[in-house]
Amino acid sequence: MQDFLSSLVMVAFHGLAYGMILYLISVGLSVTMGLMGFVNLAHGVFAMAGGYMMLSAMSRLDVPFPLAIVIAFCAVALASMVLERFLYSRLYSAGELEQVLFTIGLIFMSVAVARLVYGPLPQPVHIPGYLKGQLHFLGRDFPTYRVFLIVFSVSLVALLWFGVERTRWGAMVRATVDYRAMAQSVGINTSRLFTLTFALGSGLAALGGALGAEIIAVEPTYPFEHLVFFLIVVAVGGLGSLRGPFVAALLIGVADTACKYWIPEFGAFFIYIATIAVLLLRPEGLFGKAT
């Protein structure tokens, strides 16, 4: 019994950490898909890029951890802005198929570049000394880094939600997701809004990829391998919503951890089953707006 309780706590804890990372990575995808109606399968590329940025900044340039994180965020956000302006924006009015093909193409290219530059193996992760070790509370030991991960992500998410609820930018995003044509006609500069939101979403994904490098290994096949999970988070959560993907990410994080812990022989079987069930009952996702 004591054992069971203990493993329950551990599953919840690690599931939470994994879920928060999934959310950081996927929330941008949800918002951009809801906002621009763009099927961006290449979103994982930004997360991977963030991971590589941070790790190589730390290991090759001896940049301290906090600064490396900031660098990853800024570099990826900037690069994604360029991509959005020159490539993505041309395909906003194109069909779903074109968007899917284009973003698959981006994945292929980024996988190749990552392998050229960093080789095929996962990158080693360096956790700074002050985040190593265990923290003792609730009568148990918890890895310090993961505690930090959870606390940091939660504050980031709180900041994000506050921003969307309270700032002018947030109001414009919400208005445009709900009433695209109307937003344009009342003079919202949607093209600038798209670029900024896209950059922010990519930056968050980069943060997720960087912070989560210890959970989701940074390797060239990253954008392909984890695509299914990022998409599940968005599709199950609901497009254009902030809360939906949050709930979905935590559910998946905990469920995946639990499955791996208790019934590893089934792999992700139940997650796929649950995803299919949710999408059949609510094609617009748990929190999406019905169309």
């Binding site: 299914v228 998409l231 968005v234 089934f266 079987f269 796929y272 995803t275 299919i276 999408l279 059949l280």
Partner: peptide, 21 residues
Amino acid sequence: RTRGLALLMLTLAITSLCYEV
């Protein structure tokens, strides 16, 4: 019965499921 992202996702989930099985 679905379309758009949900359909795309379902095709992906079914393949992943078959793979897992």
